[in-house]
Amino acid sequence: MRLEWRIASDVREIETIVAEVTTACANAGYSQRVCRLNVPVALTEAIANAIMRGNGGDASRSVRVCAVVGEDMLCVEVTDEGAGFDAERARAMCEDPEWLEREDGRGVFLMYALMDKVETWCDAGHTVRLVLRRT
């Protein structure tokens, strides 16, 4: 199943997308834990990051989300209009003990922790690809 959205940079748009992707995963037989934890949290992080950091919360900029829910694998691409960021560095920052009491900065770390693979690239905008194999 392929699902696709183009949304304005508004965090209120996130919930519907997350619910639809999670439902598609559940219908495809993905585990309850994946549908309760991995998919909703990682996808929320990716879209929120695109809206707030990639597009800087600029409502005139859009975010494209494309999800393919396959029998063996979930693949979601989230593309914003920003210049991208160093995902590995963002992930590593969260592992710094000094970071524990900071309010921000856990989103990228959680994407990596909850997905099997995270890829990022800049082309026509910045894209984060989340991949989760069905176990």
């Binding site: 909703p40 949290v41 929320t44 992080e45 929120a48 009491e101 309010e103 900065g105 856990r106 959680l110």
Partner: peptide, 14 residues
């Protein structure tokens, strides 16, 4: 609660 994202966790820290 169904789930908490990084923003929610950050709010708890604050």
């Amino acid at each position: 609660t169904a789930y908490i994202d990084s923003s929610g966790l950050g709010a708890l820290v604050s």
